[in-house]
């Protein structure tokens, strides 16, 4: 920013932090993560398996009932895409000393992929199609951080 530009960055006295209820489907998903288990749910029409679970399949426009069609999944998957960034995602101006290696991982038996860190890997080692498994947090809390990332099988 120009030095002669007067910037008012005062938040004043305003503070409004939001809480979000994750909903009944993700609630069940997170309860399972807390026990180091991955579950998805399956569209009643097309059979696609979603991780995380969904209430509605967008393609078929049908509701997946809350009490049905849950699928137990393994903690292994395939790297379908990856990227490496030297930036902190929430502040591009600050460089990290180490590259952040992110993968899109398709859990075996599911039709979608999730974005997590790929751990203990050099960028040059990462290949699309590579098999990986979840590195679980030591003390799972029932939230997305229970999956620390994925490591090579």
């Amino acid at each position: 920013m120009s030095e002669d530009k007067v910037i008012v960055a005062n938040r004043g006295l305003v503070r409004a932090d939001f809480n979000f209820w994750v909903g009944r489907y993700l609630d069940k998903f997170y309860d399972n993560l807390e026990n180091k288990k991955v579950i998805g749910n399956k569209c009643t029409k097309c059979g696609a398996v979603f991780v995380p679970p969904r209430k509605v399949c967008g393609e078929c426009n049908v509701v997946i009932p809350l009490e049905e069609n849950w699928v137990d999944l393994p903690d292994t998957g395939t790297v379908v895409n990856y990227t490496i960034t030297p930036y902190r995602i929430n502040d591009r101006t600050l460089r990290k000393a180490k590259n952040l290696l992110l993968g899109m991982v398709q859990i075996d038996g599911s039709n979608t992929s999730i974005v997590y860190r790929l751990l203990d890997l050099e960028p040059s080692e990462v290949k699309i199609g590579m098999k990986v498994k979840i590195d679980w947090a030591e003390k799972p809390k029932g939230d997305p951080s229970d999956i620390k990332g994925f490591v090579k099988v």
Binding site: W21, V22, L26, Y82, T85, I89, V115
Partner: peptide, 19 residues
């Protein structure tokens, strides 16, 4: 999604462009 991927903040315009 505040209930899912926002919590770990791995997805924004920059990383998604890389993918």
């Amino acid at each position: 999604d505040p209930t899912w991927e926002r919590q770990l903040a791995y997805v924004n315009d920059i990383t998604s462009a890389g993918f």
